[in-house]
Amino acid sequence: HTSVIQREAYEYYRTPRCSYPTSVNRYLVSSNDKLAAFDAFAYLDTVAPRPLLFIVGSRADTLYFTEDAYRRAKEPKKIHVVEGASHVDLYDKPEYVTQVVEALKEFFGKAL
């Protein structure tokens, strides 16, 4: 069985929703070790004290990464959870993108 995010990524990238005619649709298995060794949190503390906004869908497979990053981040920070949205939903579904844009405008309108 494939994961939710794999199925959603296929639906997004490999259908008319977002496909591109020159895409080769290849994944290098030899990249797995590099992906596994990558630590997205290694330099999170260097972002502070810049304003940091985390946006995530409540149904996102990646929700736990976002919550962990939020806990580790220094202030000023905010997390915005889009109820009912998955990770890929936030890419282009108007009912979710509208909420994301509003969150961005509000946060950076105050923070910048």
Rank of each mutant, 00 (worst) to 15 (best):
1 H>L: 12
1 H>A: 12
2 T>L: 11
2 T>P: 15
6 Q>I: 08
8 E>I: 09
9 A>W: 11
11 E>K: 10
12 Y>H: 10
13 Y>H: 03
14 R>M: 12
14 R>V: 08
16 P>S: 06
17 R>I: 11
19 S>H: 10
23 S>C: 08
23 S>I: 01
27 Y>L: 13
27 Y>M: 12
28 L>V: 08
29 V>E: 11
33 D>C: 07
33 D>H: 12
33 D>S: 14
33 D>E: 11
39 D>H: 03
41 F>M: 13
42 A>K: 13
43 Y>R: 14
43 Y>W: 07
44 L>T: 03
47 V>K: 02
48 A>M: 04
49 P>F: 03
50 R>F: 06
50 R>N: 06
50 R>H: 08
51 P>F: 02
57 G>Q: 06
61 D>L: 09
68 D>F: 06
68 D>P: 05
71 R>I: 03
71 R>W: 08
72 R>I: 06
72 R>Q: 12
74 K>Y: 02
74 K>W: 02
75 E>D: 14
78 K>I: 01
79 I>L: 00
79 I>R: 01
80 H>P: 00
83 E>F: 05
85 A>I: 04
85 A>R: 00
85 A>D: 00
86 S>V: 06
87 H>L: 09
88 V>G: 04
89 D>G: 05
90 L>F: 03
90 L>D: 01
92 D>S: 09
93 K>Y: 05
94 P>C: 05
98 T>H: 15
102 E>G: 12
102 E>C: 04
103 A>T: 00
108 F>S: 03
109 G>A: 02
111 A>F: 04
